[in-house]
């Protein structure tokens, strides 16, 4: 139901006071102030600090402590229900649209906390673009799909807008295929083309970060390959974060990996993270090792 999407805009006041946050003492290791300290490394683009999400009584994700590096591709991996999509959607506060969602801890974007009252969600979402699991172009022309976001933010007008649309379509590797049919309805494109259009649409509002929620799961292998190629071409200009079920995909495209698991209460937990090569060759945790070897999950 679309209407659900507009219910709760109260996430800002749903933030639990940092002082009220509870954590196991041994994990905090006597450094309670450090757990929520903003990232100091300028190379860190997004920093999760003791971050957790609840939907009503259900704890979806907790105690996530993770830094995401600027200009690289980071993959969130793990089995279904491990909270990786929830974590991804926390970065542009898309979870706000779920009325029962409550948050704890903090997410820092370029050192600034985003789960505080008074954050400009419109500006946040302009900075953090998103591509969804199923291609979801608007039922409008190809041009209009890309131009809409730029127009909403008042970025370009007239001929400059046209040039901007061309640039974004070219950046998404779609320009040559659609340059003669910009007025054609976007729904008439193939699934892979639609997904690249959605990427162009996201790029059109000039974001710094691109979130991709299993962007290839509805696509065939050839279309998947093209999206992966495109993702590699987007770094280091953009910071890309991708959620994927596909271990091979994570290995192929990502520079850094974060591996999530579901604990006994069906709550998502971050198991380990690091450079992709390191994680795949020498996983520290047994669960990571078994998952990557395809022995569970």
């Amino acid at each position: 139901m679309v209407s659900e999407a507009f219910r709760g805009w109260r996430a800002g006041d749903g933030v639990v006071d940092p002082a009220g946050h509870t954590m196991a003492a041994e994990e905090v290791a006597g450094a309670e102030t450090d757990v929520l300290a903003p990232p100091t490394d300028p190379e860190v683009c997004v920093g999760f600090r003791a971050f957790g999400v609840r939907y009503g009584d259900f704890e979806a994700l907790k105690e996530v402590q993770l830094d995401i590096r600027r200009g690289h591709i980071t993959a969130f991996m793990g089995p279904s229900g491990c909270g990786k999509s929830t974590l991804l959607r926390s970065i542009n506060r898309m979870n706000d649209t779920i009325p029962s969602a409550r948050f704890t801890g903090q997410v820092y974007l370029d050192g600034e906390p985003i789960y505080v009252p008074g954050v400009n969600i419109i500006r946040l979402r302009k900075r953090v673009g998103m591509v969804f699991q199923k291609p979801n172009p608007f039922p409008a022309s190809i041009f209009e799909n890309v131009a809409w976001g730029a127009r909403v933010h008042g970025l370009y007008k007239g001929h400059a807008l046209f040039e901007h649309v061309e640039k974004c379509l070219a950046r998404a590797g779609l320009w040559d295929e659609v340059k003669d049919k910009l007025k054609l309805n976007a729904m008439s494109l193939s699934g892979g083309q639609q997904q690249r259009l959605c990427i162009a649409r996201a790029l059109a509002v000039e974001p710094e970060i691109l979130l991709m929620d299993e962007p290839c799961s509805a696509l065939d292998p050839i279309a998947t390959y093209r999206i992966e190629e495109l993702m590699r071409s987007l770094v280091p200009d953009y910071t890309v974060i991708i959620v994927t079920h596909n271990i091979q995909q994570a290995a192929r495209v990502s520079d850094y990996c974060a591996f999530f698991w579901v604990d006994e209460n069906r709550c998502g937990r971050l198991v380990e993270s690091g450079p992709t090569a390191q994680l795949f060759e020498a996983p520290k945790d047994e669960r990571t090792e078994r998952y990557l070897a395809g022995r569970m999950g």
Partner: peptide, 20 residues
């Protein structure tokens, strides 16, 4: 008709930074 619009449509617009 408005309720039947897929949620993904609204999400796409909101994720672009559009207001409600």
């Amino acid at each position: 008709a408005i309720l039947a619009v897929p949620r993904a449509q609204a999400e796409a617009a909101l994720a672009l930074g559009a207001t409600k």
